[in-house]
Simulated assay, not measured.
Amino acid sequence: MSKSLKLLSLLFACSIALPVLAQDKAPAKRFGFGQPASKEQIAGWDIDVRGPDGANLPPGKGSVAAGEELYMAQCAACHGEFAEGAGRYPELIGGKGTLKSEDPRKTIDSYWPHGPGLFDYIRRAMPFGAPQSLSPDEVYSIVAWLLNQADLWPVDKDMDAAALRQVKLPNRDGFIAGGDPRPDVKPDTCMTNCRKDPPKITSDLAARLGVTPTQKTGD
Rank of each mutant, 00 (worst) to 15 (best):
M72F: 06
V139I: 11
R172N: 13
P36L: 00
V167E: 06
E138L: 03
D173A: 02
G94D: 01
E84F: 03
G80H: 01
R124I: 00
C194R: 11
K106N: 15
A13Y: 09
F128K: 15
M159F: 04
L57S: 02
G34P: 06
I122N: 00
D46E: 04
G85Q: 07
P131L: 02
T217N: 12
E81W: 02
V143T: 15
Q215I: 12
L152I: 05
S135F: 00
V20A: 13
V64M: 01
E138G: 02
G60E: 04
A125N: 04
A86T: 05
N171W: 04
A163I: 07
Q149L: 12
Q35M: 10
S9V: 06
F33N: 13
F82G: 05
E91Y: 02
N193F: 08
L11T: 13
M72E: 04
G51M: 00
P187L: 09
A17G: 07
A73E: 14
G95N: 05
S4T: 11
I42F: 07
K39S: 14
Q132N: 09
Q35S: 14
D160W: 07
L205W: 08
M191H: 11
T217P: 10
A130K: 15
S203G: 04
T212R: 08
D53R: 02
R88Q: 13
A206T: 09
E91N: 10
S9E: 11
G54K: 00
A162I: 13
K6Q: 12
I201H: 09
T107I: 02
A130Q: 15
Q23N: 12
D137P: 03
G174K: 03
A28M: 07
E69G: 04
F175I: 07
K6A: 13
A28H: 09
G179N: 07
A144K: 13
T202S: 14
R123K: 08
V143Y: 03
E91D: 02
N193D: 14
Y140T: 08
S135C: 09
C78F: 01
Q132V: 00
P199K: 15
D204G: 06
V185A: 05
K168H: 11
P213R: 12
Q132K: 14
H79N: 03
M159Y: 08
V155N: 15
K25V: 06
S38I: 02
P187N: 14
Q23A: 12
R208S: 09
A26T: 13
S110L: 06
D109A: 07
P59W: 11
N171A: 10
I122V: 06
C75V: 04
I142Q: 01
I47N: 02
F82A: 10
G179W: 10
P116W: 00
Q23I: 07
Y121H: 06
F175E: 12
D219F: 10
G210T: 10
A37P: 03
V64I: 01
K61C: 03
Q41I: 06
A162H: 13
D180W: 13
K96D: 04
K29N: 05
L152H: 08
G97M: 11
A55C: 06
K186Y: 14
N148M: 08
G174R: 03
D219C: 05
L57N: 01
E91Q: 15
P59V: 08
A28T: 09
K25I: 08
L92Q: 06
F31Q: 14
G129L: 04
D120S: 00
R195M: 13
T212L: 13
A86Q: 15
K157D: 11
L146H: 05
D46W: 01
K196S: 11
K106G: 03
